[in-house]
């Protein structure tokens, strides 16, 4: 096997980093808005609203691009965990993160042109991108145009369930982002996977 292999297309890398910047901006401003407190200003409230709205709308376009480009290029297939032995491979991957990595065991999955992701990655990425992201985007859109929210629901403002769903799905994305950044250090070297997401070349 070659020492390095070109795996990640330019459009995926560009989308990935735009998405990363947007999610970071949305996280910081979202926290500033939700935990608004005059004594603990992270980002000023009005500025947070503007930045959050701009980044949110940009995220919608970035997400639409991601979905369409995945369909057109066939890259969507990468996100689908392939049988047989999905559970066994996921368990083996989990075991490597918890135990194997400390013993210096080889990575149980070798990325290739046909299978970029290990089973845990494809399961997580698929869930985040196709289950959680639509929720955070749709609830964010309703938040942006609250006239589309139900006026009242069970005696409360109809925006309450929308806001709660937005908050919870955003929290899931935050948890994913933190794990994703950390697990990015588990490549051949601490920086090799970050490098791959810039150059597109994977170092075996």
């Amino acid at each position: 096997m070659a020492e390095r292999e070109y795996l990640i297309s330019l459009w995926i890398r560009v989308w990935h980093w735009i998405n990363a910047i947007l999610i970071l901006v949305l996280t910081v401003t979202g926290i500033s808005l939700h935990f608004a407190d005059p004594n603990l200003p992270l980002v000023e409230f009005a500025l947070s609203v503007r930045l959050h709205n701009i980044a949110g709308v940009t995220l919608i376009f970035a997400y639409l691009f991601f979905v369409i480009a995945n369909i057109v290029s066939g890259n969507w297939w990468q996100f689908v965990p392939k049988p047989p032995g999905i559970m066994q491979r996921a368990m083996a991957q989990g075991r490597w993160y918890v135990i194997g990595i400390f013993k210096g065991e080889p990575h149980p999955h070798t990325p290739s042109k046909t299978t970029h992701f290990n089973t845990l990655q494809s399961l997580t990425y698929w869930s985040v991108m196709y289950l959680v992201m639509p929720v955070v985007i749709v609830t964010g859109l309703i938040y942006l145009y609250p006239e589309f929210a139900p006026d009242q629901l069970f005696g409360y403002d109809g925006l309450l369930p929308v806001a709660l769903l937005h908050y919870l799905s955003a929290a899931v994305i935050l948890l994913f982002m933190l794990s994703h950044i950390y697990l990015g250090t588990t490549g051949k070297t601490v920086g090799s996977m970050f490098k791959m997401m810039i150059t597109g070349w994977h170092e075996h």
Partner: peptide, 23 residues
């Protein structure tokens, strides 16, 4: 909440605490 969800004002401290502890 009967009238408006006011960002930053109508918070659920228990939910906030659970999420902060999780993070």
């Amino acid at each position: 909440l009967s009238n408006s969800y006011v960002l930053g004002a109508t918070r659920n401290p228990l939910l906030d605490a659970v999420l902060m502890i999780t993070v």
